[in-house]
Design a protein around this nucleic acid. Structure first.
Lengths: 100, 100
DNA sequence: ATTTATTTTGAATGATTTTGTCAAAAGTAC
DNA sequence: GTACTTTTGACAAAATCATTCAAAATAAAT
């Protein structure tokens, strides 16, 4: 249930790699990676995919972690956060059946 | 389970009001309202609140509808959409307990 | 069917947000 | 202390988003 940032920081530290190394692989400045790891910046899809490749973890897992972070952020200061997520879920389910 | 746009279009048509009238109340161009009703543009919070006032419906209901639309949009083309929403839900729940 | 009212579209513009770079400051380990 | 890593914040470029406007399309009324 960790954020993407926490997840990749742990992966990186377990391998004892500096930000520099991972950032180079992603082709971004290490400052950005630092911010991503601490949840100060959002990664983009390409970066998430490359991170999965780099750390050899399931791409889908990382994508879900990343996307759900974005959703949580979007409803963060709403007291209707939970309700909103539940309604969104129903809408997605409904769209699924509807589409063809 | 309707989108915000569908909801307010119905409200407006039931009262047989032109876009112009509602748009004037919101202090926006009618073109924008037209787009909002058809889901081509996102409303902002202030507009949603004014819409609730105008149509005399529960502000919270409209806000949830609006916010959930945004979430659905964000995960729309993901095949992990549902999973993502569920994970987001867990994260929100977790944050709730954590935050004192 | 012509006129009138309403709605939709899209191009242009402006504002805001996002994304990134860089260099200096802060922190860690030796 | 020095060397290395991480964090910070100012700044610029790019991308996204909101808005306006006028014209085109649609619908309604007579």
């Amino acid at each position: 249930m960790n954020s993407l940032g926490e997840t990749i920081r742990k992966l990186r530290e377990d391998k004892e790699l500096p930000l520099r190394t991972v950032a180079a692989f992603l082709d971004i400045d290490q400052a950005i990676l630092s911010k991503i790891e601490r949840g100060q910046r959002n990664a983009n899809r390409k970066q998430v995919i490359k991170l999965a490749e780099f750390f050899k973890v399931k791409e889908t897992d990382l994508l879900i972690s990343w996307l759900s972070d974005k959703l949580v952020y979007e409803v963060a200061d709403e007291d209707v956060a939970l309700k909103t997520l539940q309604v969104a879920e129903e809408k997605v389910k409904y769209n699924k059946t509807k589409r063809k």
